[in-house]
């Protein structure tokens, strides 16, 4: 299970302020903290406060600051292709591009970009019509993403399909559909695409967020989830991922399995 730390995101107030003041200390703090908690990647998102024109420069700055204190690769998270490319240009190692939708015009931007920079690409099972409800409709869009990868010569294992998790309190009926979609994505091709979710969204504005997050993570893992963007501060969540890895026979058991899961 690959965990992507979600914290360097302008949606969080301290990060938004740090971006505004170009205060590297806050970014470094979260980069180090998530690295120490066992993250495999660090998500970087400029957030809503940054104007479109400023996004490339901010993404470049965030990527540089983050990688100055952490050996981890980043998951460059933006709806603005210029911002993503600005991050890719200064990024060390293999980045994840977060993300393209299944819209043709977007795929024509992001797939060649992923190939050019030897990056992984997250593909969302949505298009301009929005997020479909049923697993079948999600799979139809996943198939378009797979075709996009083949068309643009992106190795299928470098495509990370995100079936889009929605909050349990507003879109409860999506919960099982996402799980079914994960199961079907894993049999789409051989080798199959990888799968990813933005986990914390499942508990947005809900009570007992930590419990909902870790329960859903384990359910998704059992259905074929490979990557998740998560709150690395939630130790019980990381423990649950470690335990699920053992119970799914993805990792060989030893008594120190909680510790080994956090080691890279």
């Amino acid at each position: 299970m690959i965990l992507i730390g979600e914290r360097i995101n302008g949606m969080f107030k301290d990060i938004a302020e740090a971006i505004l003041n170009r205060d590297a200390g806050v970014i470094e703090y979260w980069a180090k903290r998530q690295t120490d908690s066992g993250a495999h990647y660090l998500d970087i998102n400029t957030g809503p406060a940054v104007t479109k024109e400023d996004q490339p420069a901010v993404m470049e700055w965030l990527t540089k600051v983050t990688q100055s204190v952490s050996p981890l690769p980043c998951c460059l998270d933006s709806a603005n292709p210029d911002a993503i490319e600005a991050g890719l240009k200064v990024h060390r190692g293999r980045a994840i591009i977060n993300s393209t939708t299944a819209d043709k015009w977007k795929m024509e931007i992001y797939f060649p970009m992923a190939v050019k920079y030897n990056a992984y690409l997250i593909g969302l099972t949505m298009n301009e019509k929005g997020v479909p409800k049923s697993a079948d409709d999600r799979i139809a869009l996943a198939t378009e993403l797979v075709v996009g990868a083949e068309l643009h010569n992106l190795p299928i294992e470098d495509l990370l399909i995100d079936p889009l998790v929605l909050p349990a309190n507003v879109a409860q009926d999506h919960g099982p559909e996402v799980i079914e979609a994960l199961r079907q994505i894993k049999v789409l091709t051989d080798p199959p695409p990888r799968t990813v979710v933005g986990l914390s969204n499942v508990s947005q504005r809900c009570a007992e967020r930590s419990l909902l997050n870790r329960t859903y993570l384990v359910m998704c893992m059992a259905a074929g989830l490979d990557y998740a963007i998560v709150n690395m501060d939630d130790e019980l969540l990381v423990d649950a991922a470690a335990a699920a890895e053992i119970l799914l026979n993805r990792n060989i058991y030893c008594d120190a399995f909680l510790k080994t899961f956090r080691k890279r």
């Binding site: 060989i252 058991y253 030893c254 008594d255 120190a256 510790k259 080994t260």
Partner: peptide, 11 residues
């Protein structure tokens, strides 16, 4: 015992 082997390597 592969589990013990892994644990011993860790220790």
């Amino acid at each position: 015992d592969i589990n013990l082997a892994k644990q011993l390597n860790i220790l």
